[in-house]
């Protein structure tokens, strides 16, 4: 944007043009990727076949099962996963005023991992075979929220965001230590399944899970959008925010709850997916050219959906039929982007 445009008296109409263009572009690309994710896979179907299957969802054919039970849920999960993780990361970055914060740094994923390791590596749940398909999900959720509750409890006592950040990091280390001990003690056969879960994947989402994610996540997102005004005030730091009328104590608990809810939801089903929560908020900030959270919250949703859809597509297709770990692809994407952004110092918080 040129200086001349900036100085126009109706600066508002100008500053809205860029976000609208970026929104449209991201929306279009995400739709294209969703279509690709449904259309492309290790088994080849022609576009007409897929179209027919989607339109006439009744048959009991294999193709129907593949499209309706595997590909569509997975495509939707990738979109939701990216969106939720990105917004979760955005909230935490604003809250901690720290660009290297993501849902994973606060120990949320480590909490989920440690609980899942209990389920998958030990024999504590032997008696509960009926529950076993849901056990990982439930355990991950419990772990994520357990760690989050500790962090929130500390948050209400500690004033400084940095201290809280360190508490989160330490929680992560503690959980990691427990996980590694359990891994060392576990039987060989069990370890592989656990390692695969740890790599993160959007496969295996059930429709019921997607419905829960949509409803709960949607509500949380709506709540977060309503918080965008205090979030903007928070860009100046806690003390300025308080002096402008933000109820700090209530606000910070809300922020942490929302961030953990979104990240926990995704992690419990998909396993830990790295870097999306960390890198996407930066990409959104740069793409939209603003720090205004009223634009960034929907912006990060779309950007996150786009990035995870793309990463999932690459993970599935690059060495098809072997599926690459999703976290590896997101890391290949995320790490250079974060380093590049920080080197350019365009996005410092």
């Amino acid at each position: 944007m040129t200086t001349a445009e900036y100085i126009l008296p109706r600066a508002d109409s100008v500053s809205w043009r860029r976000p609208l263009v970026v929104f449209a572009l991201l929306g279009f690309l995400t739709t294209v990727l969703m279509v690709l994710n449904i259309g492309v896979g290790s088994v080849y179907f022609s576009p007409e076949e897929i179209w027919k299957t989607i339109m006439q969802h009744q048959s009991v054919s294999t193709m129907d099962a593949i499209v309706w039970k595997i590909r569509i849920p997975r495509a939707i999960a990738a979109v939701l996963g990216g969106a939720y993780l990105a917004v979760s990361g955005l909230l935490l970055q604003v809250y901690f005023r720290n660009p290297i914060v993501g849902p994973f740094i606060l120990g949320i994923s480590s909490g989920a991992t440690v609980m899942v390791s209990f389920v998958m590596l030990t024999t504590l749940t032997v008696g509960m075979t009926v529950l076993s398909p849901f056990m990982t999900t439930v355990a991950a959720f419990a772990g994520a929220y357990g760690v989050m509750l500790i962090v929130v409890a500390v948050a209400s006592r500690v004033k400084s965001g940095v201290t809280l950040l360190i508490v989160g990091l330490m929680m992560g280390y503690l959980c990691g230590a427990v996980t590694s001990i359990l891994t060392a003690l576990a039987e060989k056969e069990k370890i592989k399944g656990f390692v695969l879960w740890q790599l993160g994947s959007f496969s295996g989402f059930k429709w019921s899970e997607i419905a829960v994610l949509l409803v709960c996540g949607g509500l949380v997102l709506a709540l977060i959008y309503l918080l965008s005004k205090p979030l903007n005030a928070f860009l100046l730091g806690e003390e300025y925010a308080a002096s402008m009328g933000v109820n700090i104590r209530r606000f910070r608990i809300l922020i942490l709850l929302c961030a953990c809810a979104l990240a926990g939801m995704i992690t419990s089903v998909a396993g830990p997916v790295a870097f999306v929560g960390l890198a996407v908020p930066h990409m959104a900030r740069l793409g939209f050219g603003t720090s205004d959270n009223r634009i960034l919250i929907p912006g990060a949703c779309l950007m996150g959906a786009l990035v995870t859809s793309l990463c999932d597509l690459i993970a599935r297709m690059l060495l098809s039929p072997v599926e690459l770990p999703l976290s590896a692809i997101t890391a290949f994407f995320g790490a250079p982007i974060v380093i590049g952004l920080l080197m350019k110092r365009r996005v410092k918080l």
Binding site: E239, Y240, S243, M244, G245, G289, S291, K348
Partner: peptide, 18 residues
């Protein structure tokens, strides 16, 4: 309070892209 009192602190603030 915010409508009555405003503050200017010594903290260095530099919100990005504002």
């Amino acid at each position: 309070l915010a409508k009555i009192m405003a503050v200017v602190l010594t903290d260095k603030v530099s919100p990005p892209l504002f």
